[in-house]
Design a protein around this nucleic acid. Sequence first.
DNA 1: CTGAAAGCGCTAACAC
DNA 2: GTGTTAGCGCTTTCAG
Lengths: 335, 335
Amino acid sequence: MSAKLFPAHKARMSDVARQAGVSLVTVSRAINTPDKVAPATLAAVRAAVECLGYVPNLMAGSLASNRSRIVAAIVPTIANLVFSETIEALTQALAEDGYQLLLGQSRYRPETEAALVDTFLGRRVDGLVLTGIDQPERLRAKLRRAGLPIVQTWDLPGPGEPAPIDMLVGFSNLAAGQAAARHLASRGHRHMAFIGADEARSRQRLKGFAQAAPDKVEAELIAAPAPIDAAAERLARLVERRPGITAVFCNNDLLAAGVLFACQQRGWAVPGRLAVMGFGDLPIARAAAPQLTTLCIDRAAMGARAGQLLLARLAGGGGAPPCDIGFEVIPRGST
Amino acid sequence: MSAKLFPAHKARMSDVARQAGVSLVTVSRAINTPDKVAPATLAAVRAAVECLGYVPNLMAGSLASNRSRIVAAIVPTIANLVFSETIEALTQALAEDGYQLLLGQSRYRPETEAALVDTFLGRRVDGLVLTGIDQPERLRAKLRRAGLPIVQTWDLPGPGEPAPIDMLVGFSNLAAGQAAARHLASRGHRHMAFIGADEARSRQRLKGFAQAAPDKVEAELIAAPAPIDAAAERLARLVERRPGITAVFCNNDLLAAGVLFACQQRGWAVPGRLAVMGFGDLPIARAAAPQLTTLCIDRAAMGARAGQLLLARLAGGGGAPPCDIGFEVIPRGST
DNA sequence: CTGAAAGCGCTAACAC
DNA sequence: GTGTTAGCGCTTTCAG
């Protein structure tokens, strides 16, 4: 409780002001709007700052200016490349304008997400990035009332689904699932299977997949977060239930890589005996042999775009229409 | 009697106080230390909070109390499972005590790291988690002067290396490299190669690996962040330069998986023609075929421990000695 | 271009 | 238990 809580950022703005022989306000301006200060004054202030080792207290500044320059993001988990790559790009985009990222993990739980939102609102973050569009109405209402810029990501509302809370950048998981099925069908497959996490967006892709598949789809849903080492075991179950399947759509390239290894062990040719399709176009997709056919989602673009939308709004810009970043089937050797 | 309707978060504590018929301080206590408030008062305050949709301004609270309840962490990139899993555990540990995580990415650049530190100090974060121990002396000095709790992670200073800035939880990358070489040697290998990122900790592991290898080690260093799809190409280079190599140590399990696929394409038996060892014990290690022998680092424990060290110090506890979380060679089929 | 005054919304001492 | 009095360190008006 003693000295440790009152560490070395001892110098305040008033100390710098005294040292530089100017007023406190001038120091503030020298720091925030240097071009509105006379060169000589600026130099004096900078010298004083240097000399005292002054570090501006952004917390106090935020309180006074009502702008925290902090944006919060909530993802189910950061320990999943699809989300961490999005967050990487988002952080980068924000950093360019001097914004920092407060990270929250919902662990796929709505209550946790709601609790995180409360905390973030309390911290007066300037903006919020959410994963998915399946927030409960109660939360959506609260967020709308809060009136801060919000970007929902990773999904697009279909007909009948609630409108975005504010801004949105995503893609249709339903359409992605359909595209996967159509790709496999185009390669002559009829009996398809699905392995994915038991979670909203994955289920949405399964729905689309099943819609567009020529035959009934056999599915294995793994409790999220999906452990990819489950691949071999899930494949085994699938094959036991439906020996005739000739193609499997894995909702994550890592899972698909696991299936590739499992096929290798079974002595199954890919795509001869089983076609394997992944999701994400993670680096492993190209490193695999055969290379993975996959659904490419531009995660970096999604994160960057989310950041840009927020920054534009924070800079006084108007709203932007929902942004569909789309997806692309990347045909490679595994199908 | 009836409450004014406040636009979201426009209600201040004084509004709640008036509505509840108590003083502002009482509201503060009701929120922060409910057990120091009479039940009836508490109920009245809570009703008022509910009725006004009051969300406490944590920013103002932080300024007044000089505690932000925010911890910052800097990693090279979050788009790498080894770091994102550490951050996941850290975030989780902090959340349990009501702390949030501000995330910074250095992109393996010391200047970026230094700039992030400045910002975070300005934000008066309560603690800081750093990746690695190779911060320049200038930065170390600044951080020591700052006097806030700091945990360095992912490494352990060897003899002659600078002492920790404050607290530390890591493992010896040098020893890890040595252990890898010894494991491969124990399997009868003499001609070993290394593929890894061109970055401090990876180089440290290479150093240990080379020290303990019976013969000269052939190395391929990939500019960080290492794209894992480079695996096949790097393996090709290695083999071209030293056809006699029989074992390769990859500094990341994903890279190792890529090498496994490359071997498959070459028709090389693993471990018959080439033994492959990974690093990290990521989920893919067990999903691979053959399963990957790897160096297991308990990243979740490291992140959690970092959080606990910080929380303990913030709760008034004393310092803790450097914590070596160690590593473990997990022998599996690939060697 | 610079300065003086007036808070931002809350917590921390102290009183009562 | 509860209230009163002071700030936390900065940014904003608004003067000059």
